[in-house]
Design a protein around this nucleic acid. Sequence first.
DNA 1: TCAGAATGCCGAATGAAATTCGGCCTGATA
DNA 2: TATCAGGCCGAATTTCATTCGGCATTCTGA
Lengths: 144, 144
Amino acid sequence: MDDIDRALVLRLQQDAGQSYAALGAAVGLSAGATHERVRKLRERGVIRRTTVDVDPAAVGSGVLAYVMVDSNAWMGESGEAFAAIPEIQEAHIIAGSASVMVKVRTATTGQLQDVLRRLYAIDGVIGTHATVVLDTFFERPLPL
Amino acid sequence: MDDIDRALVLRLQQDAGQSYAALGAAVGLSAGATHERVRKLRERGVIRRTTVDVDPAAVGSGVLAYVMVDSNAWMGESGEAFAAIPEIQEAHIIAGSASVMVKVRTATTGQLQDVLRRLYAIDGVIGTHATVVLDTFFERPLPL
DNA sequence: TCAGAATGCCGAATGAAATTCGGCCTGATA
DNA sequence: TATCAGGCCGAATTTCATTCGGCATTCTGA
């Protein structure tokens, strides 16, 4: 993981569709060497996968909310219960008054309400506190 | 935006590196037609870009926190002030007691503290409330 | 310090994939 | 029903990914 690797990851985050030749030229390597570097970054798990960034509103997920989930038990093994709710995009164990925080995307606030209902159905969950996002300034890749 | 488009977006989210031939076979289209569909999805902005998913810990961002930012003024035009802090990965205007919520990734909690310091320096910011993530269950693509 | 091994890079060769296009079919329009 | 636009297929062409031999540099251990 040297400066070249970091530069490669940075540029791939910005555009994973460019050719290895272009990518290599940007960091001063041949296409072959660039290919090998990127292959190893994947192998090591630094790059997990290549994906596309989708406009949530365009695919029917215009409502974004963060939900703090309160519980009366240790939630450390409940990951799958949260994963079973497809509208949940992220789920984290947190330090603080609540024990879990989830990021939810739905088409409408009605569906958001339904997600809250399903959260309550999870073992140990005793309360939720939803924070609705009114506007997103930005969502961007990791700093490097 | 029909069922085929949705299937394409779904599969591209899972793996944007596959060939148009494979992608087309999965949805019942030729490589050429698939190429054209995807081109239009990009053109319409449904697909914003193709990128790589990076392991944060591997690039020196092992600490994740969400920070509620309190203010004494309308923050609607302050997006750039938040964007100027590279450790902030997302920034949203929210409904509720705080006015802005940001997602922060740093290498250490010391750097997190430094980010809070810089948040306080933004015009109108009068307080922060950080929630540190202890463990991430999952982070995944949009539901479709 | 020196031989051997390992690593990383370059440049060329080869096969696979992206991209382009003409022609055909279907559904909508008037 | 005649016309037109949109979408798909399949082939042709160009570009790119991937693989490899050979060379230089660095690392290891004696």
